[in-house]
């Protein structure tokens, strides 16, 4: 009966994979592991069984700081009324090219 204790205490790691050179790392999922070395090994076996990656990151989930979706309105508000940051905002005569 010693068991449930140990895995429950293993921290959660978020896993990021770079599929190939030239692409950024992308979040693929998470896993539990006792330390970073095991987290990397397990991530390789769980998330790259078909050569899905050339590089792996594991990040302790506890180290991630997230914006809360509850605040999403106010938090992302500043960008909401600035349509002029997008090229489609501007009226350009149809005959103008390369613009």
């Amino acid at each position: 009966m010693s068991e449930p204790r140990s895995t429950q205490e293993w921290p959660l790691w978020e896993v990021f994979v770079r599929a190939r050179r030239g692409l950024s790392h992308q979040h693929v999922g998470s896993l539990h592991a006792p330390d970073a070395t095991m987290a990397l090994r397990n991530a390789r076996d769980i998330y790259t069984r078909r050569s899905e990656g050339v590089s792996l990151w594991v990040v302790p989930a506890a180290a991630i700081v997230a914006s809360s979706p509850d605040e999403k309105d106010e938090f992302f508000d500043p960008a909401g009324d600035k349509a002029y940051r997008h090229p489609t905002f501007y009226d350009i005569p149809d005959e103008v090219q390369h613009l």
Binding site: S2, E3, S6, T7, E9, W10, A33, P34, D35, M38
Partner: peptide, 10 residues
């Protein structure tokens, strides 16, 4: 195995 991994990490 899980216990050993925990002990090693510790």
């Amino acid at each position: 195995v899980r216990d050993a991994a925990s002990a090693y990490a510790e």
